[in-house]
């Protein structure tokens, strides 16, 4: 299993600028930095209503030195596809088109447009900044909110589990699907660069981005929480190419999920039994991911 480097230099273009409107310590701003600074200057971004729209800046200001089109909540993938189709006609097909959407705009209301764009294999990079709920409107439940979590819409704890969006997207057979998180910025930047350089087809990266206010996390603990999500096995880092080629970058490091859960106010209502249940589900999901990865590799190998 690949260990991410402790000392690293991430090559960045100066696209995302200081003075943006994110909260101090915001995980999403950190993600946006590595995403757009890696995508580079020859990029047009599409942003739906979300924290990213706020971070992008109010007219006439912009926190990004690239054109940003703000679309409606459900339309990111279709809007990005429209730009790409026009660029192709203008002979500028090499210009990157990047959708930067939240989890509500991806798992929920934007999913139809995203699935359609994936089926058409539109030549875009779609990055979902997943903070596990509608954080911009005050921490309501989305399809990305985890099992038993407190949100404004599930004050007693969410009764259902989080959608498995990387697997759903991988099932479309698109060239690239990856998970990432802000606590492993070198891994994130590498995946963005890989997606950027693939060219052709829909490349999808879902980035777990802790929301300090929405999750009840201390201002200086966003990165720690992000790393714990990976190291407890709740958010394995992996890649899927063409729906079949799995690469698991980093899985659980033997740390119980309770270490992750206790860092966050949104889980403070959990009973020991509930924590046990989350541990069980996490273990099962990890087993399933490994089984799926090896099974798919076997079938793909047999087909060759």
């Amino acid at each position: 299993m690949a260990e991410t480097k402790k000392n690293y230099q991430i090559p960045e273009e100066d696209i995302f600028l200081s003075g943006h409107a994110a909260c101090p310590g915001c995980g999403e701003a950190l993600a946006v930095r590595y995403v757009v600074n890696t995508m580079g200057e020859d990029t047009i971004a599409v942003v739906p209503p979300s924290c990213i729209a706020i971070i992008s800046g109010p007219q006439p200001y912009s926190s990004m030195k690239i054109p940003v089109y703000q679309t409606t909540l459900e339309a990111s993938a279709a809007s990005a596809a429209g730009i790409k189709r026009a660029l192709i006609r203008q002979g500028k097909g090499d210009t990157n088109v990047l959708a930067l959407a939240g989890d509500g705009g991806t798992y929920d209301i934007g999913f139809q447009a995203l699935s359609g764009a994936a089926e058409r294999n539109e030549d875009i990079v779609y990055v979902c900044l997943d903070n596990e709920g509608y954080m911009n409107t005050g921490a309501q439940k989305s399809g990305a909110s985890p099992h038993l979590v407190y949100t404004a819409f599930t004050p007693g704890g969410k009764p259902t589990t989080k959608k498995n969006i990387p697997e759903i997207m991988a099932s479309h057979g698109i060239p690239y699907v990856a998970t990432a998180t802000t606590g492993f910025p070198d891994d994130l930047a590498r995946k963005v660069a890989k997606a950027r350089d693939m060219k052709g087809g829909l490349r999808f990266i879902v980035v777990l981005t802790p929301c300090l206010a929405g999750w009840g996390v201390k201002d200086n603990e966003g990165v720690k929480v992000s790393r714990l999500a990976v190291d407890t096995g709740l958010w394995p880092l992996y890649e899927v190419e063409n729906g079949v080629k799995y690469t698991i970058n980093r899985g659980p490091q033997g740390i119980p999920v309770s270490e992750y859960l206790k860092t966050q106010g949104r889980y403070k209502h959990l009973t020991p039994e509930m924590i046990e249940q989350i541990q069980r589900e996490t273990d099962e999901a990890w087993e399933l991911l490994q089984a799926r990865a090896s099974c798919v590799a076997e079938v793909a190998g047999a087909a060759r």
Binding site: T71, A78, S79, A80, A81, A113, E119
Partner: peptide, 20 residues
């Protein structure tokens, strides 16, 4: 672009037109 809905068809038309 064979969109998956009229909503996406119009969304794409808007950005294609905005792209020029």
């Amino acid at each position: 672009m064979t969109a998956e809905s009229e909503h996406s068809a119009m969304s794409a038309c808007i950005t294609a037109s905005l792209t020029g």
